[in-house]
Design a protein around this nucleic acid. Structure first.
Lengths: 115, 115
DNA sequence: ATAATAATTGAACAATTGTTCAATTGTCAA
DNA sequence: TTGACAATTGAACAATTGTTCAATTATTAT
């Protein structure tokens, strides 16, 4: 275990320096909102299922063993977060992954979890 | 906007195929717990502050304009999730980022949020 | 030992979240 | 038009979450 990073400056100087580099509230909330969407088992399952291809609400409900209503509520959250997109096809609504970042973040998160 | 992925097979076959590829509950919870930890503005701010170097609880509280208690509670969550580590130095406890994945995930999440 | 400072802890509270349930909208087939 | 099926919606409920407050532990200096 290496020693902590060099602490040459005194505390208040260090605090001032860090304070200057802090992000705005807008960015912080953007980031945390994004992670919040990923921070739910049901939504993780939905994203995982959609990684293999588009599925409609009925199919997702069957895969996850959940009610259509519960799945639909979660899909709305994923849709607003732009992680999935909806495509109407007759009576059904098919959902797809919407973003390439998701796959990469996914990969890195897996590495962390499985380390 | 491209068409949805090819839906050659019928619905129940597709459901069965996807079901077979679904991850175990353990992995799903591991992933969602990880993202849940990142899904809070205060913890995002803490991680951001620590990206520039180690800081003790007092300093973090000053940077974030929060009570030591509130910061300490959040640090515990980050510590349990192995995103930071604590290093005692006299009366103070300094916290550091603990993981390289964090920086990469961070980067990709930023790309997504700022798109 | 005592005082002072740093950090942690647990209980309590308000706020947020995910699922269920019932009702509703929208689309296709008869 | 009617009936059946797919999906969405809103209210309600229990469960979880983040901060505050007060009390406690731990370390240093006098």
């Amino acid at each position: 275990m290496p020693d902590i990073s060099v602490l040459t400056e005194n505390s208040s100087v260090r605090v001032d320096n860090v304070r200057r580099l802090m992000p705005g509230e807008e960015l912080v909330c953007g980031l945390s909102d994004f992670f919040k969407v990923m921070g739910d088992p049901t939504r993780i399952n939905i994203l995982w299922a959609l990684e293999k291809g588009a599925l409609c609400v009925n199919e997702l409900a069957a895969v996850l063993n959940m009610t259509k209503s519960a799945v639909s509520h979660q899909l709305k959250i994923l849709r607003v977060a732009k992680l999935v997109r909806a495509l109407k096809k007759g009576k059904n609504v098919y959902y797809e992954l919407n973003d390439e970042h998701v796959r990469i973040i996914w990969e890195k998160a897996l590495e962390h979890v499985c380390e």
